[in-house]
Design a binder for these strands. Structure first.
Lengths: 418, 418
DNA sequence: CCAATTAGTTTGGTTACTGAACTAACGAGG
DNA sequence: CCTCGTTAGTTCAGTAACCAAACTAATTGG
């Protein structure tokens, strides 16, 4: 009972319609195919209200009637409803140190198009990178499988500190970006490319990874969930009751730089013993495949290959490699335990390059979590591995747009805009 | 944009009224004395709507008209509104290792009655303690200054892990409590004492301390705020956007047991090097006034005196004492930095017994935060000292009840119940 | 073919907000 | 002193959204 906050404007009839549009849409997403009557039961709304709302959703192209019921029960059969997966797409993009990724999903969050290209973002600079992103998006929209679909919006994941409200990248050290107004740039580039004006959403890769896991991963619908990126940096996206924890300056979840080991190795941030310097991909590669990585900042382009080499050597049974991975796993576990003590999630998901390394990282990580997380927890904290691969953040970008629809926050697009 | 969560029932006309009742109540709280027209301007609602809502609030005894305006401006003068501080009280209680505290506040959250008594809760056991709490509440309600007031509810702070929804204390190691259905007990005791059935709210002392600071402290209205208890345990109450961060099992904010120093001193939880074992009041007293504290668990009853002795010795200029405090301050700072990296609050407030020790703890603490928190923060994290003393948690218990009114979540009490 | 059952729509009623017109109370200026 | 301009608050008609209940529709089972 002692919770919700003040920040509210005046509430009007409009808000309640919005809320209920969202409820019905969600009910259909979860129950499809289902009848209006079932939706009414699921949401607690009246049949009459559901009818009215469903009509509106159909008008807007979000829902469709898909024939009569299959079941043969007594009584009039209901007409089945499902999300209309034909009319819309949402694009998710990710910039990272060594690649660009695009995922296009339909209303069901099924992947319709996926593009991936290696790209040394650090060398190219932000302008060039934005141009490539826009180009990727425009190319995707040309694909035959997207023909005739209306664009719901574009969600972009960037590894760094973001002002999501403004769509600006404050600081992305691993890309060498500072104060980049990415949303504005992309808006402009997309307009020039002939795309109608749509929402462009910019967010941290860890945050969007968490959204992707929440909405689409194998652990989905766990509302208190943390996603940890295993890229060059380590970041955490924290979902609390299904909502992103952003913090006062939008920098919550900066798990990479919590101090773990006094006098530990020097970190990119200038301090010593940060989690990132002990368990970041950079640190791991330098210990496991020192012959494949140069000194100085990682150029990135062959990160995936280097990680694959590490996996190979570990599988060969090289003790030194396995020990190094276990050590990193232990540090990671200490970091996760700290996070768990403060935020108390249900599950922590290791993503990015941590996923392929999980066979060696995970046991040590779990043991360390067990040892350091506060004791007798009902249920207990789970530490799991992502199955979304390197597209997690991009998927999250797209998923965030779908979610906005689901909650009724963004009013569903009007038929005119299609 | 990528945030709010699913958990919503059907929205109806009722909800919007509730929301707006809350908005108007808050506007009056912040603007009083103010006219209906001013409230309309502040909330964005129509004059007509405001009139209707204000009438309802007056009927319910929450608001009153307090004469005409003082200002002499052209035009018809408005009739001034303020919260009616005469009709209601909310009680806040706190159990701690060495004392019980009660605070009664009116709608303006002004203290109407305060009771404090030393009490060795650990020795007495939970039943006895609940009885004493109920007795304290009943005694308070007899006070002449509360005569004729209706009771809004009772909020109880307990240092331990709480299921706030059920009002049950899972585990309070420092009290020696396990699985105590405190709400049920208190409900029963209060009923026997002849009190009408009111909401009884049980929560963690750190959480309620945070609520108290948010609503009444000198840093109030900072929506991203962390309150740290300095009692026998160290706990953090985390407010995110004005709402409590609870976590999946209600155990968020367990900052006391984050591992800071490998091979550090043994902690009560069985591990080594927890923050609590390095900077808890227990640890501090054992280093600064070893002659005044026995071995074994602190009996508690003279904690205040022992802390006072520490302050005295530090003021006398004893180097060893000052050094010990600085050391603890530094560890505290490392803990705060970790918390800040993960949760990104605006301000961290040190409460409880940390407050009197702040002159020595705070500089070291701030320095450590500066050194370990992630670098270039807009505005920067503030670390401040609570001014609420040992009543913070109890005040928070009462404040949480007032807040429930303010948000319209709890429907304002009907005139009948007064 | 009719009863029972379930689905969906229609209708009438209630609740809350809005906008606009109206009444009320005051200062200022002739 | 009276009128005008100004601001406060109320009243009233209108609209939007919900709900409950009655109604229509489409089946199965006897």
């Amino acid at each position: 009972m002692p919770t919700p906050p003040p920040p509210t404007g005046p509430a009007g009839l409009h808000d309640i319609r919005e809320t209920n549009l969202g409820s019905v849409l969600r009910a259909i997403r979860e129950g499809a195919p289902c009848s209006r009557a079932e939706v009414a039961a699921a949401t607690g709304l009246t049949k009459a209200t559901v009818s009215s709302i469903v009509t509106e959703l159909i008008d807007r192209g979000l829902v469709r009637e898909s024939g009569a019921t299959a079941e043969r029960r007594v009584g009039r059969p209901g007409v089945m409803l499902s999300l209309d997966d034909r009319g819309f797409v949402a694009l998710g993009l990710e910039v990272n140190v060594d690649y660009l990724t695009l995922v296009a999903v339909d209303l069901l969050e099924r992947e319709v198009v996926a593009l991936h290209e290696p790209f040394a973002a650090r060398d190219a600079g932000p302008e060039e990178c934005a141009a490539r992103l826009a180009d990727l998006a425009l190319r995707a929209l040309e694909e035959p499988s997207l023909a005739g679909r209306a664009l719901l919006g574009v969600g972009v994941a960037v590894p760094g500190m973001i002002d999501a409200a403004e769509g600006r990248v404050y600081d992305a050290p691993n890309l060498g970006w500072r104060n980049v107004p990415l949303r504005a740039w992309l808006r402009e580039l997309l307009r020039k490319g002939g795309t109608p004006d749509v929402p462009v959403l910019v967010d941290n890769d860890a945050n969007l990874g968490a959204v992707a896991e929440y909405r689409g991963g194998h652990l989905s619908h766990t509302p208190d969930l943390v996603y940890i990126t295993g890229e060059v940096g380590i970041g955490a996206g924290v979902l609390v009751g299904g909502a992103l924890l952003r913090g006062s300056t939008g920098q919550a979840g900066e798990i990479g730089h919590i101090p773990l080991r006094r006098g530990g190795p020097r970190c990119g941030c200038g301090r010593r013993g940060c989690l990132e310097s002990l368990a970041g991909i950079d640190a791991i590669l330098r210990q496991t495949v020192p012959d494949l990585v140069p000194a100085g900042p990682l150029p990135g382009t062959d990160l995936a290959a280097a990680v694959a080499a590490t996996v190979e050597r570990a599988q060969e049974g090289r003790g030194a490699v396995q020990r190094a991975l276990r050590r990193s796993g232990t540090w990671l576990g200490r970091g996760v335990a700290t996070l768990a003590n403060l935020v108390d999630p249900d599950v922590v998901i290791l993503g990015g390059y941590f996923a392929p390394l999980a066979p060696w990282l995970l046991p040590a990580c779990r043991a360390a979590v067990q040892a350091h997380a506060i004791a007798p927890r009902r249920g207990g904290l789970r530490v799991e591995v992502s199955e979304l691969g390197l597209t997690a953040a991009a998927r999250g970008g797209a998923a965030a747009l779908i979610e906005a629809l689901d909650t009724g926050r963004t009013p569903p697009p009007s038929p005119a805009s299609r």
